[in-house]
């Protein structure tokens, strides 16, 4: 896989055997829409940049999917932008374990996680930001929003921060809730039934991540 610094390379992970490169020193955008379990570990070197868009939506298949990504930013200039969308339905069990580790100063990470739990599904999201001791200034942010669409859905999340005193400025925001009553009501007052309204709201919620997916070009699929 070509990785030249100075231009972003985009790859689409589609086959079951596909994986992120273990080391990244250029600019890489990776899109992963596979509804499979996987465990990945990536090291981002100086001035390497990873943009990773993960979309797990098993559709009608029941079962358990467990996704784990550990990303280490090891030298100044390394950065990671992670976007995740999980969409669980029926009796699916989806779990995400995302860990970003800042091993050097001058590194930056920003994670946006969106999860939708529909009827009967159980979703679990663990995200961890950690930093090594005695490194220079860096920044990390996690924005995690989770939507519960049915009374039988269940969502648990644990946004963990594990920080050594240094220049890291780290923030985390997480919410879990159903569709906002005022939004639902607005749509229904326009004649849209509750089911359809929820679908619309769910689509809007998901679009935040889906809109990040670049267009596919030939030669990018692995």
């Amino acid at each position: 896989m070509a990785e030249d610094s100075g231009s972003e390379v985009t790859i689409f992970l589609e086959s079951a055997a596909a994986a992120l490169p273990a080391e990244i020193s250029g600019e890489l955008c990776a899109v992963d829409g596979r509804a499979i379990s996987a465990e990945e570990r990536v090291t981002i070197r100086g001035h390497g940049r990873l943009r990773y868009i993960l979309h797990v939506s098993p559709g009608e298949a029941t079962g358990t999917i467990h996704r784990r990504l550990r990303c280490e930013l090891v030298a100044p200039g390394a950065s990671a932008e992670i976007f995740v969308l999980l969409h669980g339905k029926k009796k699916q069990r989806l779990s995400l374990d995302l860990h970003l580790h800042h091993g050097a100063g001058g590194t930056h990470s920003a994670s946006t996680v969106r999860a939708v739990a529909d009827g009967g599904s159980h979703l679990k999201i663990i995200s961890e930001i950690s930093s090594a001791p005695k490194i220079g200034p860096c920044s990390a942010a996690v924005d995690s929003r989770n939507l519960l669409l049915a009374p039988t859905a269940r969502l648990a999340t644990a946004p963990v921060l594990s920080i050594h005193g240094n220049g890291i400025a780290c923030t985390h925001g997480a919410t879990i809730g159903g569709p906002r009553p005022d939004e639902l009501f607005y749509l229904r007052s326009r004649g849209i039934c509750e089911e359809a309204a929820k679908e619309l709201l769910c689509a809007a919620f998901s679009s935040e991540i889906l809109s990040k997916i670049p267009t596919r070009l030939p030669g990018q699929i692995i």
């Binding site: 969502l155 920080i163 780290c170 923030t171 985390h172 925001g173 997480a174 879990i176 809730g177 159903g178």
Partner: peptide, 16 residues
């Protein structure tokens, strides 16, 4: 945070 049911909301913010 562990949430289910209807119309429940959990919000959390943290900073270091």
């Amino acid at each position: 945070m562990d949430c289910g049911g209807t119309g429940n909301v959990i919000e959390h913010e943290a900073s270091v």
